[in-house]
């Protein structure tokens, strides 16, 4: 999985992912997210436009991120999910606690 991290002018960390998010790739993503959590990044947005597959291992990574960011009062949002990828979040009922946006602009509003 390719992980591209940049920070925009509003001090929001935007992470663009590319590839499958499964049991193989999730440890790498978790490692990158850990660094951001250690630096107490206040706002994170994750772009899933180029992710065509997410399973329970991928969701577990986001649950961990959610719990840790909640602990220090920060926010993260996911955006650009395909219908299929969105379905795993819905089945796990994570759409009720995660900030899931359709577009980058909406995600920015969610974390602002």
């Amino acid at each position: 999985m390719k992980i591209q991290i940049k920070k925009n002018e509003q001090n929001v960390t935007v992470i663009a992912l590319q590839g499958d998010l499964d049991f193989h790739s999730s440890p790498n993503l978790r490692k990158e997210l850990e660094k951001l959590i250690e630096s107490q990044a206040p706002k994170i947005m994750i772009d899933l436009a180029k992710v065509e597959y997410v399973d329970s291992s991928g969701l577990a990574t986001f649950v961990e991120l959610y719990q840790k960011m909640k602990h220090y009062g920060a926010k993260f949002s996911l955006f650009n999910l395909s219908e299929s990828v969105q379905s795993v979040f819905e089945i796990a009922k994570l759409n009720s606690i995660f900030l899931i946006a359709k577009t980058e602009e909406e995600a920015l509003r969610f974390v602002s």
Binding site: D55, S56, L59, A60, T61, V63, E64, Q67, V88, I91, A92, K93, L94, S96, I97
Partner: peptide
């Protein structure tokens, strides 16, 4: 699993 999950893991068989 409890839903939504409060801890990572435990969703595989549920899926």
């Amino acid at each position: 699993p409890t839903l939504p999950p409060v801890n990572p893991g435990g969703l595989g068989i549920y899926f």
